[in-house]
Computed example of a mutant assay.
Amino acid sequence: MNANADRIAQAESHFGVRFPADYRHFLATEGSMSRFVPPADDFLMINSIAELIDVNEAGEFQEYFPGSVVIGGDGSREMLVYDFRQTPPPLVLLDVSAQDWSSAIHQALSLSALLEQFPETGWKWDESAGHPVTSPGDR
């Protein structure tokens, strides 16, 4: 196993999840990103594997949002989060001040889908732009 694969496995073990294949591939090949994406001109940041645990512990997201893993955001207040309460885990947007999952705004069903649609759509800011986020009790 190479160093990146070791770090990915350590992060998965830390969070008790298996990251989706496309996210694992992104981490192993691209590593991270932080830039304005034209033509939408929204800022998209995806953290490196080295930052992943620290970012999640700094925001105490695991305590407020069990089953969440923050992987990036808009470079400001919005966090891009995997919702591992669902299989496969969708990507949602949560403000740093969010109190519960009801504030989550669906972005995409996978990282590949997000990266494909992001140049055109940018961030989705309301539920009419995506799927409603449900908690396990809602099913």
Rank of each mutant, 00 (worst) to 15 (best):
N2K: 05
N2Q: 08
N4W: 06
N4Q: 13
D6Y: 08
D6S: 10
R7G: 12
I8P: 07
A9Y: 00
A11G: 08
S13M: 06
S13Y: 02
H14P: 12
H14W: 05
F15P: 01
F15E: 05
G16F: 00
G16P: 14
G16H: 09
R18M: 06
R18K: 14
P20S: 04
P20V: 07
P20K: 04
A21S: 15
A21F: 00
D22R: 09
R24T: 11
H25M: 08
L27C: 10
A28M: 08
T29Y: 05
T29D: 09
T29V: 10
E30V: 14
E30S: 14
E30Y: 02
E30W: 01
E30I: 08
S32N: 11
S32E: 11
M33V: 11
M33A: 03
M33Y: 02
R35W: 02
P38T: 15
P39K: 04
P39F: 10
F43L: 15
L44D: 06
L44G: 05
L44V: 10
M45P: 00
I46M: 04
N47A: 11
S48D: 14
S48A: 14
S48I: 01
A50I: 00
E51D: 13
V55M: 13
V55A: 12
N56K: 09
E57A: 15
A58C: 07
E60Y: 12
F61I: 09
Q62L: 13
E63S: 13
E63V: 13
G67P: 02
S68M: 06
S68V: 05
V69F: 06
V69I: 03
V70Q: 03
V70M: 02
I71T: 12
G72N: 07
D74G: 15
S76Y: 11
M79Q: 12
M79D: 07
T87Q: 13
T87V: 06
P88Q: 12
P88I: 10
P89N: 02
L91A: 09
V92F: 03
L93R: 04
D95S: 09
D95Q: 04
V96G: 07
D100M: 00
D100K: 04
S102R: 09
S102E: 04
S102I: 01
S103H: 11
A104Y: 00
H106E: 10
Q107N: 07
S110Y: 12
A113Q: 14
L114F: 06
L114P: 08
L115P: 01
L115G: 10
Q117Y: 04
F118N: 13
F118R: 10
P119Q: 03
E120W: 01
T121G: 05
G122R: 10
G122S: 06
K124Q: 14
W125G: 10
W125Q: 13
W125Y: 13
E127K: 03
E127P: 03
H131P: 00
H131S: 13
H131N: 10
H131A: 12
P132V: 02
P132F: 00
P132W: 00
T134V: 06
T134S: 11
S135W: 00
G137Y: 01
G137L: 07
G137R: 08
G137V: 02
G137H: 05
D138L: 09
D138T: 06
R139C: 03
R139W: 07
